[in-house]
Design a protein around this nucleic acid. Structure first.
Length: 260
DNA sequence: ATGGTAGTCTCACTA
């Protein structure tokens, strides 16, 4: 099965781009972030007409995550456990009815800037909650992919100009340490594992001609449970959508899991 | 060094 993740920066503004890419790339599952709309205003019919089941967790104006899948979705969880007062829509997970079941989660991890400040504190506590939830989830041994916009540059080589991001929430030692904690629990970062020498990006700022200059960042990641990593066939970044009209500032990342 | 862009029921905020 082919699973993709894409921060679309408004699903309504991006609908033609997203539908074009679904038709061309034909993923079994698309994990969306920054849908930026309430569930009521989500263009659900358009996804369903394209052959996708849909589970969404939205809010007005900001954030918002969703899962589109050609296969049935069950066991939906909306929101990351650990803080009932957290109203930001940044996490949704579901079991995909394929093979013996594959779990997927769409993640929109807080940006965390400026540092220091409340937003950075929120990022770190959100990551702590993610670590706890992943720890508990791994007990099930169901192949699971936690994918999305992590707002983390795992290493300097994932950034076109790391010196410009010193002190940024995307590179802070506390942010990177928590990301490594996820890896130390046994998760595999799919793209880097399959491309140990490469430099490619998944995000280019709208400003200052970042895209034509290839001033990019790699902040969209697939983290796979051990049982999902066993199935990993390929993982690629498709930069083509970033070059199209009315593009999102992020481009899709996808991986192939060789399920039965 | 600065400011540049895009989206959202804004005239400010997030990224």
């Amino acid at each position: 099965m082919k699973i993709a993740t894409w921060n679309v920066n408004s699903v309504r503004a991006r609908l033609p781009n997203v539908l074009d890419w679904l038709a061309a790339a034909n993923p079994d599952v698309l994990l969306l972030q920054e849908t930026k709309t309430t569930d009521t205003d989500f263009p659900a019919l358009e996804f369903e007409s394209a052959g996708y089941h849909l589970e969404i967790h939205g809010q007005k104006s900001y954030n918002g995550v969703a899962i589109a899948s050609k296969h049935k979705l069950t066991n939906i969880r909306r929101g990351l456990p650990g803080d009932d007062s957290d109203e930001q829509a940044r996490y949704i997970e579901a079991t995909v009815d394929v093979g013996n079941g594959v779990k997927v989660a769409s993640i929109y991890l807080p940006n965390g800037n400026p540092v220091p400040g409340e937003k950075f504190d929120y990022k770190l506590s959100w990551m702590d909650r993610l670590v706890s939830h992943v720890e508990k989830s791994l007990i099930s041994e169901i192949p699971t992919a936690w994918a999305g916009d992590y707002n983390i540059l795992p290493q300097d080589r994932d950034c076109y100009a790391p010196e410009k991001f010193a002190g940024d929430a995307l590179t802070m030692p506390a942010s990177r340490a928590r990301f490594r904690t996820l890896l130390n629990l046994g998760l595999t970062e799919a793209w880097r594992t399959l491309h140990p020498q490469a430099q490619e990006f998944s995000y280019w700022d709208y400003q200052a001609g970042a895209w034509p200059k290839d001033n990019g960042l790699r902040i969209d990641h697939f983290l796979l449970s051990p049982q999902a990593a066993d199935l990993l066939g390929s993982c690629e970044i498709d930069s083509a959508p970033r070059g199209q009209e009315k593009a999102s500032d992020h481009t899709p990342v996808w991986c192939q899991l060789d399920t039965a």
